[in-house]
Nucleic acid binder design. Sequence first.
DNA 1: TATAATGTTAGACT
DNA 2: AAGTCTAACATTAT
Length: 261
Amino acid sequence: MPELPEVETLRRQLSPLLAGETIRGLEILDEKLRGIRDPAGKTILALSRRGKSLEFHLDDGATLVLHLRMSGRLRWLTGPGVFPHTRFRFSFDSGRLIGIDPRRFATLGRLPERPAPAPIADPSQSIPAGKLMAIAGGRRLPVKSFLLDQRLVAGIGNIYACEILHAAGIHPGKPSGSLTKGEWIGIATATKAILRDAVTCRGTSISDWRDLFGRPGVYQHRLTVYGKAGEACPRCAATVVRIRLGGRGTYFCPICQTPPR
DNA sequence: TATAATGTTAGACT
DNA sequence: AAGTCTAACATTAT
């Protein structure tokens, strides 16, 4: 569920609450998450984000890495509160951080060594068209799959990939190696604008995404194609279609997103 | 009952 | 061999 804008929303909301706070305890309620050394007594120095991962930097030099995968959410509580599917609970002097995850795909680890960052490490900050084109090289990989590959571009997920390609007017199935420089520039421009806008909107709440305080984001009101099969394309009024690409539901406008060749 | 869901990855296939 | 594709993970909702 959470993509770059949603995770960045959590990071921004958590930073002022947790920087300098000492972890008083960590309760793990899902046996799948067992195995991390107890961080109780460690102080959080800073929070960062890498792609869709949220990183807690501790004063013992270790880093706790949280990935929410499909259905993970975080809630900050200062009073009582019980949520179904709670999988872990951090306690601090100032409150509690609850991890909620119905599908149990989320991961929480204490990684001493992190993998090398993707070539496009933060597409909301810097996404040079020339670099995209170079990476795409003569690949046949559909451009949407390219944008979703976290080893290449970190942070874009299914919703924003669909929205970016619609904004850039490019068919999601177009082989990435066949895009022109102009098309990559369009993708880079759309990516930065959309991701930044979505962060400002505190993410997209189509179904169950909520921010740290339980409030829905508002970017769902700005979606142009994602989840809109059968509806009119806001740019050309043709009917938005849904296909399956790389195993994921893919929405696009068959008229203003150029067909692959 | 069958399908799909904001993600990732191991293993299969080409 | 590298690039690409599919199934699987676990659960809920339609």
